[in-house]
Structure formats: C-alpha cells, structure tokens
Simulated scan of single mutants.
Amino acid sequence: MKTVVGKKERWEGKVKGRLMPPGGGIAEEVKPPAPVLKVLTLMSNVLPKAKLFPQKDLAELAFRDLRKRKMAVYNVICYKDQTRLKTAVELLKVTSEIEKQVEKVSSPLLILHGAADKVTDPLVSQFLYEKASTKDKTLKLYDDGYHCILEGEPDERIFTVLNDIVSWLDYRVSS
C-alpha cells in the first residue's frame, strides 16, 4: 500500500514475504562456509560475471508439497542458472545492511514465515518483528511451513495464508 503525498511516497503498510532481500537472513545451512565466502568475495572483484558461486537446488527446501515441487522446474520466471559471483556477494552485503537498519521500519507490518523454512531462517522474521519500530506489527509463523508458503504448501495452507493477508489488510482499510 503506497500513497503519494506531494512529491514524497509514503508506505502505509508492508506484508513481509520479501522485505529483506530475498527473504534476508539466509539460513546457515545454505550459506557457503566463511573461508569460501571470503575467497568468493575477492574473486567477485576480478571475475564479477563468473558463475562460480555454489548453486544448491532449493526446491526440496522451499516446496513442502511434492506435486508442487515437481512443477517448480516449469516456472518460466524462476532464474535457473548459477548466480553470478558479484550478484551473490552483493545480495549477501545488502542483506547485512538491511539487518543493521531494520529498526527504521515504521509502517504497519505483517510478517509471514514458514516455521520449517530451511532457506531463510524464521529467526530473521522474529528479529524483524522485535526490532521494527512500528507499533502495528503482526508475526505469523506457520507450523511445518517451508520457504514458499504461497506456492509450495498444500492448498489448504496457501488459502490460510491468503486469508490472513486479506484479513490483515481489511482491518487496516476499514479502521
């Protein structure tokens, strides 16, 4: 929800699914070890377009519903190639920078996260909830939910998440 006031844009609320770059706070299980990360960071200055950054198939970690996991490979908007070295390093840097400034989040905030997410640690959402300066904030952790709570879960769970979003928005629009 965004309003333009004069020349300034003002956010009236956020639904956190991807406020932190891609999800922020990448889980330790999917991050490269610190020494490897240091080497990759140095190499990114010399070979920025190199696709040397280790790639893991995250479908198993992101999609709980097996049928939807199999269909994920057909998603035409999903980038399937290895991440370029400089892109990966910059994503890690910006994630760290956002984590340092999370207290500046002052708009109403709905944070949704799968409690069994192995790609983005659910503690990151807890951290955002605790540190954001807004008084109007809601954190919903979905038991057994994986990373893709709006596409990789059983339909019943997806409808629950969508209903939670609509209810949260409806309450704020009507008040």
Rank of each mutant, 00 (worst) to 15 (best):
M1R: 08
M1I: 10
T3P: 01
V4E: 15
K8E: 13
E9L: 12
E12L: 15
G13A: 08
K14P: 00
V15D: 02
G17N: 11
M20K: 07
M20F: 14
M20Q: 11
P21E: 07
P21W: 04
I26V: 15
A27M: 03
E28C: 06
E28G: 12
P32M: 07
V39N: 07
M43K: 12
S44N: 01
S44V: 02
N45K: 14
V46Q: 02
V46L: 13
V46M: 07
L47Q: 06
P48N: 03
P48S: 03
K51G: 09
L52M: 10
L52N: 05
F53N: 05
P54T: 08
Q55D: 13
K56A: 08
D57S: 03
A59V: 07
F63S: 00
L66T: 15
R67I: 11
K68W: 02
R69C: 06
K70L: 02
V76L: 07
I77H: 10
Y79V: 07
K80W: 01
Q82K: 09
R84A: 09
L91K: 04
L91M: 12
I98K: 13
I98Y: 15
E99H: 11
Q101N: 15
K104G: 10
K104S: 12
V105L: 11
V105G: 01
S106R: 12
L109W: 04
L112N: 04
H113N: 08
A115L: 11
K118L: 14
P122T: 05
L123M: 14
L123H: 14
V124S: 15
S125C: 09
S125M: 04
Q126K: 15
F127I: 06
L128C: 05
E130K: 13
E130I: 02
E130L: 08
D136F: 02
D136L: 02
K137H: 01
L139Q: 04
L141G: 01
Y142W: 10
Y142S: 08
D143P: 14
D143G: 06
D144C: 08
C148Q: 07
L150M: 11
D155W: 07
D155Q: 13
D155H: 07
E156Y: 10
I158H: 07
F159Q: 14
N163F: 01
V166E: 09
S167P: 00
W168H: 03
L169G: 03
D170C: 08
D170K: 13
Y171R: 14
S174V: 09
S175N: 15
